[in-house]
Design a protein around this nucleic acid. Structure first.
Lengths: 206, 206
DNA sequence: GTTTGCATTAACAATTTTGTTAAATAAAAT
DNA sequence: ATTTTATTTAACAAAATTGTTAATGCAAAC
């Protein structure tokens, strides 16, 4: 039947909304069922437990979060400066598109230590693959005197901090943001520009 | 009696631990009671409800978070560069001392929209008082050609992003951090230094 | 010593939340 | 058409969680 697949999808879509906004502890299976337009027994039929539904959502989100960094900085065939600039912008755009992603993943990893290991297995290799190539490029540029010498891991932490924090802390920095830019789009444009500027200056040879 | 005050304090201390690590939804009043060494009816006797205990904790944490920024940057009688450097370091140290603070406040504000307004009433004036003076100093320094001209709100967002993000996302960036510095203290020293460097370069006149 | 008021306990009530199942229904296969 | 399989519902079970109260203890005040 075709209905069944669509109901399963409806449940997952509703669960995504519920878990992302309220977290595992705050989420209610009955709310998920209601939002999906099914009885809550259907959740048991398709997924057996709240935990199972959550894992489906969480795994996907963890994957997307890793991807957000990996995808942004994997572009080859550019100058170091262009690669970084494009990487920062691309990463920023991704986070701006899914602003709830980092907070959700961080929280659920934090509140369940058993997920630490799983998270690290997924994040570890990703960072290796990015940093390896980038560190060599950085070193070569520094050798040629084109930029400052620095640890690429510190650089990546700078970039991610700048790109992600505004969105994580949005409810708190809102008064500051609202004053800074009337609409969200303007804020994102200005903020992205600022982040690129900060990183470029960090690397500039003095 | 003297016991009563100490029990009340024991409950609050246990509640702080419970709420900070698990959030409002994940916290269990019975766990708080156990950790405080009292029956759970005592919680009702002293505070009436879970909500009331939570508010006591939350209000205090919100206050501390505001203070972390305000206190760091209010020092007068220094050159702009020194004021910023000391401010960044002082703010970093505060967050490093209470690393769970930002995540807790952000999450609880996020999951309860009715707190947005309250938060903004507390954060808004604080930012005004800091940014007003700083923006003038910045402008004057820029007039003298000593530094780049920029919006102090963007600058503050840069600083707070760099100082806070590592601690919020610690469980995720751990593999990167562990590689970077063997112990926490070393990481904090390096990271603080990096954050100061980034901001100083951001302002340097080119 | 009795009374008064606060602190504490144990038992319980109410609600919520998740999980389960047997029966009903619809669809598909033979 | 009949059998078989998959889907759906309604009712229920079990556990957890918060909130409540009546009874008890206990120390200080009178």
């Amino acid at each position: 039947m075709e209905q069944s697949r669509s109901k399963e999808q409806a449940i997952l879509a509703a669960a995504e909304q519920e878990f992302m906004t309220k977290g595992f502890d705050g989420a209610r299976t009955i709310s998920i069922a209601k939002a999906a337009g099914v009885t809550h027994a259907m959740l048991h039929y398709y997924f057996r437990s709240k935990e199972n539904i959550f894992e489906r959502i969480f795994d996907e989100k963890m994957r997307l979060l890793s991807q957000s960094v990996l995808e942004a900085f994997e572009q080859q065939g550019l100058s170091l400066e262009e690669r970084l600039r494009k990487g920062i912008e691309s990463h920023f755009d991704y986070i701006a598109k899914y602003p709830g992603l980092p907070r959700f993943v961080v929280n659920e990893v934090m509140s369940r230590p058993e997920r630490h290991e799983m998270m690290q297995r997924r994040i570890g290799p990703m960072f290796e693959s990015i940093t390896k190539g980038l560190q060599r490029e950085l070193d070569e540029a520094a050798d040629r005197g084109e930029c400052e010498r620095m640890d690429v891991r510190m650089l990546m932490l700078d970039i991610v901090s700048l790109n992600v924090f505004s969105f994580i802390a949005m409810p708190i920095i809102e008064p500051l943001v609202g004053d800074l830019a009337v609409d969200r789009e303007t804020f994102c444009r200005l903020r992205k520009q600022e982040n690129v500027e900060v990183i470029m200056r960090r690397l500039k040879k003095l």
